[in-house]
């Protein structure tokens, strides 16, 4: 593997996104939501903290996932559609290197965006109160787990986009994202079901789909329930392993397809 080429591709992908004005728009929008949560109603300082943390983490998560899906599905599609891929794949660059570079560049974009959103949230909280209880550690841990979720969802979107249209890829990715958050419910329904087939189906879904709810600790942060670093560690490792697996499958498909 030649890292120089992957880095060049990743850098170019990142450069494309920062020159795109849509991202700045999203960023400003999220900042506006977070800041305006302070100004909503008359609350005690404690309630303010809770509301702002809740709204802040919630919107970072939602917009992060939206970025992951919508940038992810167009990542490869745009290069094929505009035929820029022709001049790259015909160079001494493996298709898997191209995919890796594109993915890393996109992930970097999402991380930088999420970091800026986090900064807005922390600054807002610091402005609202000089708090007795320090929520910052929990917020940071929740943010790290969100990054893991973005990483995984991006990989899912890229995977689908290697063989299907952007619209279908978006539907599949959002579908998996929703299912990934409802896995315990799905399994619960399955176990109560009379039908053996339904039970087996829900079991399969439970074990095959990524369990994204593991990466959601937002309510614990809002209610000041501590999160251990070991929990952050193993759930991140889980997300990373899952991501890697999906990316390998994506590279396998991408390496075999025609660019028509």
């Amino acid at each position: 593997m030649n890292m120089g080429k992957i880095v060049a591709i990743a850098y170019n992908t990142f450069r494309e996104s920062i020159r795109d004005k849509i991202l700045t728009g999203v960023l400003l929008f999220v900042a506006l939501i977070i800041i305006s949560s302070v100004a909503t109603v008359q609350l005690t300082v404690g309630q303010w903290m809770r509301l702002t943390t809740d709204v802040g983490l919630g919107s970072i998560s939602l917009f992060g996932v939206l970025l992951a899906v919508f940038l992810g599905i167009s990542l490869v599609f745009k290069e094929i559609d505009r035929k820029t891929v022709y001049t790259i794949v015909s160079k001494p660059v493996r298709r898997s290197q191209f995919l890796a570079g594109k993915y890393i560049g996109l992930l970097l974009t999402i991380v930088v965006n999420a970091a800026l959103m986090l900064l807005v949230l922390l600054a807002t909280l610091a402005y609202v109160s000089r708090q007795e209880q320090n929520p910052y550690l929990g917020i940071f841990q929740a943010w790290l787990l969100m990054l893991s979720e973005f990483m995984l969802v991006t990989a899912v979107a890229v995977f689908f986009s290697t063989f299907s249209s952007p619209v279908l890829s978006a539907m599949f990715s959002i579908g998996i994202w929703i299912i990934g958050h409802l896995l315990s419910d799905i399994r619960f329904w399955g176990e109560k079901s009379m039908s053996e087939a339904v039970r087996i189906a829900t079991d399969v879904i439970y074990y095959v789909m990524p369990n994204l709810e593991l990466l959601n600790v937002r309510s614990r942060v809002t209610y000041h329930i501590p999160i251990g670093w070991d929990y952050v560690g193993w759930t991140s490792a889980y997300a990373m392993a899952y991501t890697l697996m999906i990316l390998v499958a994506a590279a396998f498909i991408f390496s075999r397809r025609d660019f028509k």
Partner: peptide, 8 residues
């Protein structure tokens, strides 16, 4: 420059 990098 980008394409030059891809050729190393």
């Amino acid at each position: 420059d980008y394409y030059g990098q891809l050729f190393g």
